[in-house]
Structure formats: structure tokens, C-alpha cells
Design a protein around this nucleic acid. Structure first.
Lengths: 351, 351
DNA sequence: CCTAGCAATGATACCGGTAACATTTTGCCG
DNA sequence: CGGCAAAATGTTACCGGTATCATTGCTAGG
């Protein structure tokens, strides 16, 4: 068996008594081949154990069948949900997802985007609106639809599916203020790497100032990906420095859970003595005891919408193309609403 | 700008005053090109904004540069860790990971494997040793190294990097028995879909019987992926049916965390009244209050080892090939040790 | 000074499909 | 039953690199 080569389309064509072109058609959907011929060709292919060489097909058709996506971390339920939504949204189109993670590093993102572009993807999805200058240039010149997600960049490269991290975090600040808190802190990350986290921090602290409160209670030197461990450690430092804090928002639910358990271990009652809020609507925030107030950014939906935006862009390209500029913003700049989910960890009233 | 086509190697060659073949060499590592020529070609490529067409390169060289991997769920820290380990292990080789998830469905795995094979991957990594008959055949005939992970199949297709789920769970059963527990339960999943979970259940219950204990306290009708929510719901049912249970192992840390919080909400002290154990060494198990006893399967290492196994297989292939059969089992059948991590959730002594 | 041997580069022939257009067959209608 | 449009199939050229082998120039050793 190992002696013989893989069969090609020509072999199948010969066995089925048709031309290679007809085989090519028969093995793809939406092509004009009679049912009888198609069945015969399928049988011949099965008999030979023939599998289409996607590499050759991609080369000949100038269509790779790939959609490339970069996310900061593969090990993150939020981004995984977005990737899942994108995969699902692309399912019927025959497009396959090429996934890579940047480790929250823009230089790594640039390398990854460059590697992806070699594969001639038919669209590219990136996380966030912050990129190196060269990466921006690569994306802009790629000649395929680009979707920035999880953010609302001031200067989008092309399409956007996201929300305002700053505004969502500001809403959480107001939530805490409304519950009577006055000594409010934020636990976040090293903004240079996690720009979305930095946006949240900015929005949160800005809202505190707008409410006339101090915004200096800040522990924000964690390196992303920000983990439960880091949240716990940050809470220790926060309490050491500002022991009279009554409420804290964390940059994600994971750090919020870590922070909350650290407080509980110290004997601080949540929410009575200390209110805790997170971000991202992870499962752990709902199941934790007490359940953690958070913001649901609809990560899965971001992926689904990104898929829709891509398919529309590709369909538009394939069409007459005359109306490309007439496409309304709502079709290329999609805002996904982030919802505040009040839970037990911020229930009751401070003071 | 949009009017002109993408430059090709021939354009770069002309600008640099060399043949296309030399350009091809200059843009790849480990090729005989003088430093001076290489620099000139790099400059020309930059000037034109040339990017190698990986599709054409893959076609011409009959090497796709892909390693395909299927995992049950993308939204799972364990499998994500394995994928990360694999990516890291392949980093220097220039191989890129093509990742897909099966949703714990063998039919879906078959579809995915088939789609991947079209891309002519240079190796395939799958999760577990259970596959449809056709999927096994596809993998066996793929003509590339196949690595089954996270398991120790009785009849491996090719290479294996894994551990015995049954044995690891049995160890946890003995751990609970040693701590004096006699009324021990298991919370698991629908075995038809999650075969590794079923192995754990089997190993756990078998060890209970070996210890002379009853093995009928079982809630195992959850559909994977088994979530925190499901763990909580399962605990409710477990306590309703067998209220005097003193210890429970869950098929994963996520369900264990859900189960534990459900018990705590009911006022059952953990571990004093009810011991809880999980599987997988997720972050949440370490940070939870109390911390959850678990088993660390070294998910990341599984990925790293799989990468090593693949690279060795590919290197062996490229070599003289005379000694292929002489490769020791330890190089193709790798066992990763699963370690029990005793924590607070099973501390103390029952009765 | 000659030549073996290696490094650097070039010429040629593909890799295995698909786009685009040409041709044949089928089906439908007046 | 003729004729024409649509469906089905075939022909041709080409996608953009790389493997392979040939060629050239140069260096080191005798």
C-alpha cells in the first residue's frame, strides 16, 4: 500500500469516464453536474480513496478558504466564545478558521498577522484596535476584509464589531456609586499590554471623578493574562494600602474571583464589608458564592456578528461592486451592547 | 493602489537582478545564498511590499506547513493548555497549528478530520482514542504521523501522548477512602459523548468496589461540556437522593466547583460535612474557598510532548528511513504522569 | 599551475487543481 | 418537429512557487 501515490483528479476522471473538470465540479456544491454523473464520480472517488488536494485547489482558485483570527489568549473563555461564534457563523460558507494567539503582545500580533497573510486568508479578524504601525499597514494593504473586535477604535482599519470598554466600565462605576460606595478601587493590568483592560480602567476612574470621588485607589501592575492568582495577590496589596476600601472593580471576572476569595479568606464579608465587581460574564462569576456582579459583553455574539460582516463583505465584493461605498455604517461598524449584570457581590447599600 | 496586482517572485527577481529561484532561496532559512545577495533581495522585496504566497509554496513543495489538531472544546482551559503547548513546541519548526473543535461529538470529529486532511497537514493530533470507524481509517491512511492524546488507547492508531484517566480517578477514590469516607459518590457526564469522563467514572467506581464500598451513588447524565452550572445541579440531585453522602468526586474541576458551591449554599460545610474532589487542576480549583483537591494531568506538557513526537517522526521520515521500526516505544507512546494534588476540600478525616 | 570540490546561482519542468470559454446535449415551446 | 435557451460537459491555459539538476566561479591542496 505505501508504495502507490495518492490518486489525483485525473485518476478519478478516468475511472468515471469523464474529464477532470467534471470531477472538479462534481466534488463541489452548487455546480452544474447531473445527479447521475455526480453519483458515478463520487463512487469512483470513494473506490480510489481520493481526497481533494485543498492546497492545489486553493492555489488554482486563488481562494484559500481560510479566515484568519488573532486573539490575545487561547486560554480565555471570552475570546474562546468569540472564536466559537465566528466558527459557527462561517460554518455554511465552507470557510475555515485559522486561529492564533498573540499573548497580549502587539509585536507578536504583527508576526502572527504576517504569517497569516502568507496563507492568503479571505478575511482577517483581530482583537482590539491597537496594533503596531507595520501591522496596521499590513492589514490595510491585505486586500481582504479586516474586522477589529472587542473594541471601538477611534481610527478603524476597516470593519468593527465591538463595544466601548471604557463606557462599560464607567457604567460599573456608577453602579457602585449608586449603591452608596465612596471609597472605590480598581484592580487592573499593565495597560501597555492589555489595551482593552486599560480602557476599562480609564473609563472606570473617569466615572469616579465625574461623581466627585477620588480615583487613586489603583492596583494595576499585573501582567496579562490576568489570572485568578493575580487578582488574589492584588487584593492583598490593595487592602494593605487602603484598608478602608468598600468596593472594588476588577478588570475581569477571573481576577475578581481571585480578589473576592482573598478578601473572604481575610474574613471580610462580601458584599457587606467589601463589594466586588468583575467584567466578562464568565461562568465562575455566576456560580461563585456570592455571585459576582459583572458585565456581559456577549463574546459569542461578537464572533457571530464578525462572521456576518465578513460574509457580507465577501458577497459585496463578488457582486457588481458599484455600491460598495453606499453600504451603511451599521453594516461595517457593529456595536454589541455590553450589559451590566447586578449580582450578590455588590448587593445592599454601603455605609 | 488598488489597481495593481500583488507582486510575485519574478518581480522581486527582476528588481534584484537575479533569477526567481534565487529569490525563493533567499527568503527561506538554511539555503545557500550569499549574504550580499540575500540582503539585496530582501531590500527589493520590501520595496515592492512582496509577501510570499504560502498557498503556491505549499503546492509546489508538497509541504503545507500545517499541523492539524482537534480538541473537544475550545472553551476549556485544559485543552487550550495542550494547544498552547503544541504551538510552543512547533514554534521553531515553522509549522503552524490548524485547530478545530469537535464539541465532544465523534461524528463531528470525523467531519473535521476529513476537512483537515484536504489541507494536507504534515501531522495530526487528536484528543482521545475513541473515533468512528471511518475516522480511524482516514487517520491511519493519512500518510502522516498521528498523535492521540489525553488517553491511552488500547489500540493506538500511531503515536500516543497521554495518561490513564481510569487509573488517575482510581487514585482519587483511594485518596477519599484513606480519609475515612465510606459513602462516596461520583458526578460525571454522559459517557457516550465524553469518553475520557467515562473512563474516569469507571476507574473511580471500580476502585470503590475494590475497597469493598458501594458504587451506586452516581449522577452521570450531564451533557458535555460539563459546566459549573451542571455540577451545581447535579449536586442538588445527589443530595436529594443520597443525603448522607460524605464525599464526592466530579469529572472535572469546573463541575466540582459548581457542586461545591451548591453544597455550601445549602449550608453543608466543605470538607467537614462533605468532601469534594475534581479533576484537571484548573485555576478555579486552587483559588476556590476551600481549595479543591484535584488531579493535575499536565495539559500543557501533553502539547509539548506531542510536538516533540511529531518533530521526531518528521525528522525520522526525512532521514535514511532504514531504522523506522527500531524506534523504541518510549518515543512513540509517551505517558504523562497525572499527579494528585490534595487540598483543603478533602482535608481532615470523615466520620 | 592544475584540478577536485564546494558554494552560489540559473534553467527547466513540473505540482494538481480551477477559471474561462467552447462545445455538446437536453428540454421546452410554439 | 424545428429551433433556441439552458444545462451538462469538455478544452485550454494558467495559478506562483520549488525540486532537481546543470552550470559557473572560486579556493585549497598537491
Amino acid at each position: 500500500m505505501p508504495g502507490q501515490q495518492k490518486p489525483t483528479m485525473a485518476d478519478v476522471a478516468q475511472l468515471a469516464g469523464v474529464s477532470p473538470m467534471t470531477v472538479s465540479r462534481a466534488l463541489r456544491p452548487n455546480t452544474a453536474v447531473s445527479a447521475e454523473t455526480r453519483a458515478r464520480i463520487r463512487a469512483a472517488a470513494d473506490e480510489l480513496g481520493y481526497v481533494v488536494d485543498g492546497t492545489a485547489a486553493a492555489f488554482a482558485s486563488r481562494r484559500s478558504g481560510f479566515v484568519a483570527m488573532t486573539i490575545p489568549s487561547i486560554n480565555n473563555a471570552n475570546f474562546a466564545d468569540t472564536a466559537r461564534g465566528l466558527t459557527e457563523g462561517l460554518l455554511d460558507s465552507g470557510l475555515q478558521l485559522l486561529l492564533g494567539y498573540t499573548d497580549y503582545d502587539l509585536a507578536e500580533e504583527e508576526r502572527l498577522v504576517e504569517a497569516f497573510l502568507r496563507r492568503r486568508p479571505e478575511a482577517i479578524v483581530v482583537t482590539g484596535g491597537a496594533h503596531t504601525a507595520r501591522c496596521r499597514r499590513l492589514l490595510a494593504n491585505a486586500g481582504v476584509p479586516v474586522v477589529e473586535t472587542w473594541d471601538q477604535p477611534a481610527a478603524p482599519i476597516d470593519r468593527v464589531v465591538g463595544f466601548s470598554n471604557a463606557e462599560a466600565a464607567a457604567r460599573m462605576a456608577r453602579h457602585l456609586v449608586e449603591r452608596g460606595h465612596r471609597r472605590i478601587a480598581f484592580i487592573g493590568g499593565n495597560g501597555a499590554r492589555d489595551t482593552r483592560g486599560a480602557d476599562r480602567q480609564r473609563g472606570f476612574l473617569g466615572a469616579l471623578r465625574d461623581a466627585g470621588l477620588a480615583s487613586d485607589r489603583l492596583v494595576a501592575d499585573l501582567d496579562p493574562p490576568i489570572s485568578m492568582h493575580q487578582g488574589a495577590a492584588a487584593m492583598e496589596r490593595l487592602l494593605a494600602r487602603w484598608p478602608d476600601t468598600t468596593a472594588v472593580m476588577c478588570v475581569s471576572d477571573l481576577s475578581a474571583f481571585g480578589a473576592m476569595t482573598a478578601a473572604l479568606r481575610r474574613g471580610l464579608a462580601v458584599p457587606e464589608r467589601l463589594a466586588v465587581a468583575g467584567f466578562g460574564a464568565y461562568d465562575v462569576a455566576e456560580i461563585a458564592l456570592p455571585a459576582i456582579t459583572t458585565i456581559d459583553v456577549q463574546a459569542h455574539r461578537i464572533g457571530v456578528e464578525a462572521a456576518r460582516v465578513i460574509l457580507e463583505a465577501l458577497a459585496g465584493e463578488a457582486g457588481d461592486g458599484g455600491d460598495a461605498d453606499a453600504v451603511a455604517d451599521r453594516d461595517t461598524q457593529v456595536t454589541v451592547t455590553a450589559r451590566l449584570l447586578p449580582r450578590a457581590s455588590t448587593a445592599g447599600h454601603a455605609g
